[in-house]
Amino acid sequence: MKQKVTNQTRRKMLIGGAAAASTPLWMNMASAQSETIKIGFPTPLTGPFSAEAQDQVRAAELAIKEFNDAGGFNGRKAELLVRDTKLNAGEAATRTLELIEKDKVGFVVGSLSAATQLSINAVCKERKVLFNSISQSDAINEAKDWSVYTFHEALNPTMTAGAVARYSIPRFGKKIVFLTADYAYGHEMVRAFERAGKEMGATTLADIRHPLGTSDYSAFLPRIKALNPDILVLCNFGRDLVNSAKQCTDFGLKSSMKIVAPVLLYTSRIAGGAEAFEGIAGGTSYYWGLEDRIPQAKIFNDAYRKAYN
């Protein structure tokens, strides 16, 4: 039954619920026209994903400025309320609850991490507040976490790791080792890579898991080398990806295997340096070079450069 609910039905339900709460209607309309539109933005400003989170905040602030400069919505301006989840599910739930009950946000956007998005979603579902997750995750799209208040704006591991697998395996080989961050994001990336690889006869030699926020990968590297895979897949993100890429490079793994990363962002390349990521293949949801052939990408890039030098 849930799968048959259309976007139009969702909108009608949300609009109908808002209208039912309007008593008296003219008073709410007058109040709404003068109120600021508050947008909650919980994201991991501290921890191993801090660089990526701060990048998201900058882009969100740019969007808010453009919205307000254009006159807002019927004269109503928007305000972004950023809160640090510290990459912790409990902290994320607490900050989200504060945004809803104390700050009276109209809706919530953010999370970045699959480690926090489900706790944010649970709070928003309970309080009947819209949540738009911008995390790479399959779980947020699954029926058990679905609600009329749940939205997802991002690629997911099925898309991302699947695309990278279909590119990599025919070019580099079928024997695969995964170095995986031990939480939802890493697990889902492995699952998607293996699903795509199965169609091409790929074999998993090992899925070597490490804790989120690992700084030293030296204990894992000799085992990876001994397994002698065709491809080493780094199923991690942020500072974890930077540290593992650098240490794999220093250990000399690139000479005997191809290293790929399902999600390879510009922030990681800046943090790790050119040498660490030389020769590593990966996928990305947005590449600034798109401005050469897509006008809207050029408009966005120019606005971002102007805002943040």
Results as ranks from 00 to 15, higher is better:
E52D: 13
K306S: 12
K225F: 01
L179I: 09
L97S: 13
A163R: 11
Y266F: 04
G273Q: 05
N309T: 13
F277D: 03
E153T: 11
L155H: 00
H210A: 03
S135T: 12
G75R: 09
L80N: 09
T150Q: 15
T85D: 11
T6H: 06
K4V: 04
I100A: 02
W288T: 04
D207P: 02
E142D: 04
N301D: 10
N228F: 01
M200H: 03
P42E: 09
M13T: 07
P48R: 09
S218H: 06
G72V: 02
V108N: 07
E188D: 09
F67N: 03
K12N: 12
A271Y: 03
A202S: 14
K4L: 13
S147A: 14
K175R: 15
A18T: 14
Q33W: 01
L118K: 08
K38T: 11
T9G: 07
K102E: 10
P24S: 06
G16R: 14
L130I: 15
T85S: 13
G47C: 10
S147M: 14
T203V: 15
Y167S: 09
A93D: 09
E101C: 00
P229Q: 10
P262S: 03
D145E: 12
A114S: 15
T6V: 11
A261K: 01
F73N: 09
L87M: 08
N132F: 02
I280A: 09
F41C: 09
S215L: 01
S50V: 01
K2N: 12
A303R: 06
Q247E: 08
A303Q: 05
T203F: 01
F172Y: 15
M1Y: 05
K102F: 00
G72F: 00
I120T: 07
R83E: 12
G75K: 13
D145R: 11
D207S: 13
L112F: 05
E142R: 14
G72I: 04
Y183Q: 13
K254I: 11
K258T: 15
S256M: 13
Y217K: 00
Y185F: 14
T94G: 08
A196L: 11
W288G: 01
S168W: 02
V82Q: 12
L25W: 04
T150K: 15
I208H: 06
R191L: 12
A51V: 04
I134G: 03
G16F: 07
S168K: 03
N236W: 00
V177I: 15
A226C: 06
A226Y: 05
V148Y: 05
T249V: 10
I64K: 12
L205S: 07
R11Y: 04
I100M: 06
L212H: 00
G106H: 07
D145G: 10
Q33V: 03
F220M: 01
Y266N: 14
A19K: 15
F178L: 11
Q54L: 08
A274Y: 03
T160Y: 00
F151Y: 11
Y149E: 12
L14N: 06
G213M: 04
W26E: 14
G106T: 02
S111V: 05
V190L: 06
D240C: 00
E153F: 01
I120S: 06
R11C: 04
T94A: 10
A60M: 15
N141I: 01
L232T: 04
